[in-house]
Design a protein around this nucleic acid. Structure first.
Lengths: 197, 197, 197, 197
DNA sequence: AATGAATGAGGATTCATTCAT
DNA sequence: TATGAATGAATCCTCATTCAT
């Protein structure tokens, strides 16, 4: 009954919850299940979280799309990725890899659906989404001569397509990589047009 | 206490549920609330639906994206819309109008998030999504000389962008119409490239 | 499982709760115990009461001192009880009889102690206590020529003594009847003095 | 984190508990709250008290009516207070002053209501109440020529009236002093009668 | 003496579903 | 068809107490 690894209890709870939320949804996952999976007692949960909903906030940030694209914040990126194409491929790969851990996609869609009810989550999402889009657009303008608005639309379409793929995979029949290449190509094509015009 | 308009009970229940699901989510909406809003007795609910989940299936189909684009199935459409651009603008307008009734978008995202758990819904979604994408691609090929796969990607990006707009609206700051024009333009640009190559 | 006596469920719950609250106190009595004693299912409790505290309000009024003295509101009382002494003896007897059902006294003292926390109960008590004192004083003035304030004090002392007896019984060693006679005599004595002056 | 003033921990706990019990009642006050208010750790509580109930006993005695009337045990009192009237006024003043610290009255009523359940408290109360009444009666007989039983009744009525005032204050509308004078007068009046007869 | 993380039995409340009328 | 009282399993959360440090 003693603590095997001190200080890890919170982490154990978060991980257990993550997996359960992914497979069953927030509302259907019980605190009982979380603590059972984490291997701690019921009361322990409430030492670390005020309530079940409190835990949700903890998870919300971790599955946001902005967390899925670390290269978006790497300042030396233009060096490693000389072309926009290679850069977008990198971002796309990161995104698909990140969400290939099923529970992340599940939780993220859950976020979207409960946004209305949970103000905290709504704020986290709105803010991180804005940041993501703006940063993405800024990066594009570093590669190609295009207006910010066009870059924004381009990046949003890129992001939207990746996101849509997460739940339309089986309807499309393409592999992630193939799909990604096609989408990047489409974005590039479109941008070429915007710049040449 | 007698039914004023016989035969409308089921409809009243469906409408009540729709609104409640949209604002509170499936799991948080109780049968009590549904019957209260519908103005019928508790037991009556079970005359029309085997269970709460049974009702969900009823609603699932109604908020699917395929229902949002009636023009996709209109056989005479190429007449009214001579160009791909005008056609996509029409589809996009229909889509945004359809989901401008907030509860539809809410319920749809809810669908996505519970798909894993509710096999029925998963099937409905997969099937209708496939149909939608394929029909959209087919239509594109009627306008421009492009391979089916490219048309599929193009249409999926179009659809994905519209869908993403539903929850990224406030992060973008564009009006629906402006955004739509930009997205259609991007798709067209890309397709021009694909065909010319 | 069928209802033996329709419409009595609420009453059964109230009675069961009354007895349990008396012997264990509000906080220590569980809803489980109440429904077990009432012979209904757990959920049934919440059909009739919003919460456990809601039930308390129901009981609060029933154990108030004003309920213990029905003769206080009988308009023909001066006929049956020609002297103040006989009238006070009657009121006192009613009071002691009422609270001889132990649970009433227990619940009443509980009320006093939770008054601060439960605004509803505080209001019920304050109002019913005012009414009781004022009516008692009015009755006294019908028997003897005395100012209202003196009558009020006299009646309050009478009431206070009876109430104190409920928890000081074993410290005094008198029987209820003997005690009552003494108290009534004291009140009468005092009033005689007030009037003669 | 070290104790600034060693040996004061127990006292800090008692004081914290006193305030909390007064405002929330025993059952609703948690050990968590007590230690938080006292500024010590959870485990420390159990160094000083076997259990929460153990602490209650500690407090019970401190709020008993007998503690409210120190002059009752002063052997030189007949010197300072030559008349019964002046003596009762003194006792009454002490009583009202003592319980004017609200939490004492609150806790005392709480005691009364949990007496049934907590044998320890019941014993403390019974004993201290007996002592109080007997001592009060004895004092009265030192002033006036009256039988012990009559003195007992008189003192009990005096005490009961004061106690009743603690929760009927707002129903009466008198100031404490005015009320006290009236009650003392009534007791004196009654005793005059008893002796003259 | 002091700490505070961990415990787990216990209690309030919810809600989908049934069924006698 | 329609009703709504009754059900009870399921779930969230509390809190007194322990114990290794």
């Amino acid at each position: 009954m003693a603590t095997k690894c001190p200080g890890k209890t919170r982490e154990k709870l978060v991980n257990a919850a993550m997996e359960l939320f992914a497979s069953k949804g927030f509302d259907k996952t019980t605190v009982d299940e979380i603590v059972a999976k984490a291997g701690v007692a019921k009361g322990t949960f409430y030492l670390y979280f005020k309530s079940k909903e409190d835990l949700i906030k903890e998870l919300a940030f971790e599955v946001m799309p902005i967390m899925a694209m670390p290269s978006l914040n790497d300042p030396y990126i233009t060096v490693s990725f000389p072309t926009l194409e290679s850069y977008l491929l990198q971002l796309g790969k990161e995104f698909l890899d990140f969400y290939s851990q099923d529970y992340r996609a599940e939780i993220f869609f859950h976020m979207l659906s409960v946004r209305e009810r949970l103000k905290n989550i709504d704020e986290i999402y709105s803010q991180s989404c804005s940041e993501l889009l703006r940063e993405g657009a800024r990066r594009i303008t570093a590669y190609v001569k295009v207006g910010f608005e066009d870059a924004l639309i381009a990046f949003q379409m890129f992001l939207a397509s990746l996101m849509h793929y997460l739940h339309a995979r089986e309807c499309l029949g393409f592999s992630g990589e193939h799909y990604l290449r096609k989408v990047v190509q489409a974005v590039i094509n479109h941008l070429k047009f915007s710049t040449s015009v």
